[in-house]
Simulated assay, not measured.
Amino acid sequence: MAQDALDALRIDRSKTPRKRRSRKWWWIAAIAVLLVAAGVLAQRNRPVEVDTTRVTQAWPAQSITRLNATGYVVADTKAAVASKGAGRLEWLGVREGSAVKAGEIIARLENSDIRAQIAQAQANVEAARARQTQAEAELVDANFNLKRQQDLQARNFVSQSVVDAAVNRAHQARATVGAQAAAVRAAQAAVREAQVALDNTIIRAPFAGVVLTKQADVGDVVAPFNASADSKGAVVTMADLDTLEIEADVSETSLSKAHLDQPCEIQLDALPELRLMGHVSRIVPTVDRTKATVKFKIQFDEHDKRVLPDMSAKVAFLERPLQPDERTPRVAVAADAVVDGKVFVLNEGVVRAVPVKTGRKMADLVEVSGVKTGDVVVLKPAPTLRDGARVVEKKS
């Protein structure tokens, strides 16, 4: 009896731990499932790294461009205007940007000494002419005396020696007239020489154009060939802006893609929105050994007042002339960004699928409508990319 009571009070521990262990593993399994689900959800919501590009403006000329080259704007008619004479610059009538006509006086050197020389030479001419007049009068008197002596000899009133003396006097008078005429011409030549010296102190524009730079100021000494260390060789540099053209270097290996009279599209770095038409006017028949290039001269078919010498330019050598409807830019994007008629536009970390209509292909770009310039789109989107997905741009 006592033993049964004791057995009744004994706790069977073999079943209790087994029950607790089963409940513990159930919670562990539940937590593991939750963690996996959370991981899958986190993986799904994690931003996907993508390559991006921007919607830009493209020009139709890109699709028919055979060759691209760079160069500079130069003036075919350009000169450093200087004086043939030496002297101090007394007056300068132009500045940078001044438009001048052919033959217009633009500067003058001090020339008071040369003007005095001209006055002296002109006085010498007048003196020589006076002596010539006197000699001519003596010739008239000698001829008259000779005729009178010959008449008197015919009537045997004078001897032959008197007539011979009259003949010699007439010859001398005639020679004196010739000598005085030569003296007049010499004096006139001296006037012209002094006048040339005076003209050399007056600097004129050799052609109609625009003053580009000013090398000398009033008071500077100007000398041909920059004769001294402190002298200036040129007063101004000017150019005819109507003769502007592009000098572009073309690689020897690309010469087959360019030829005379080939149409070109010109873009200036200073005016990126401006596209001007031109054509190849000349090819310089020499090769630059150091760069292995040939110089091409591209003449402007269209002009703009904003184009200035020494501007850098890009030249596209075209297969054919552009049509009027090909002169305006088009909205375009990299062809790899368009998949199944849509692009993925990125905005604040989320992409939206935007349907687009494609047009002409321009090099590696394609014309599109439905997006605007500056939009950021996904480049080469993955097949799994969906509308509304969170993405992040890859770091370059």
Rank of each mutant, 00 (worst) to 15 (best):
R360L: 12
V55N: 00
A170Y: 00
D217N: 09
A187W: 04
V167C: 03
G233M: 12
D375W: 06
F300K: 08
A127C: 03
Q117Y: 04
Q188E: 10
P383H: 00
V376Q: 14
G87A: 05
A190M: 02
E245M: 12
D269N: 07
D4W: 10
M362K: 04
L41I: 12
M238A: 10
A137E: 04
A130L: 14
R148V: 09
L318P: 04
R66H: 02
I202G: 00
L212R: 02
Q117F: 07
N347F: 02
V377M: 03
P329L: 06
A58S: 11
R352Q: 11
R327Y: 03
T65A: 09
H303A: 10
L6G: 01
L276T: 04
L146E: 10
F157A: 13
L308W: 01
K84Y: 03
K147C: 04
A186K: 05
D325R: 08
A363E: 03
T77L: 14
Q57D: 01
G209Y: 07
A205N: 07
V368S: 03
K395G: 07
P324S: 12
V50A: 06
V74S: 08
R185W: 05
Q3A: 12
D301K: 07
L268S: 01
R13L: 15
G85N: 07
A107G: 04
V196E: 00
G39I: 13
Q132M: 15
V163D: 01
L34C: 15
L318R: 02
S256F: 14
V40H: 01
D325F: 08
V356Q: 02
R23A: 11
R10V: 15
E104Y: 05
A61Y: 14
A194L: 11
Q180T: 13
H279Y: 07
A335D: 01
G178D: 08
V158N: 02
N111L: 13
R23D: 00
L365Y: 14
A116C: 00
S22P: 00
G374F: 09
A353D: 06
S161M: 13
Q149C: 06
V378Q: 01
A99I: 11
P324C: 09
I64C: 09
R275T: 08
V36M: 10
A80K: 06
V221T: 14
E245L: 15
W59Q: 04
S228D: 08
D151T: 13
R174H: 06
S312E: 01
V236D: 02
Q299F: 08
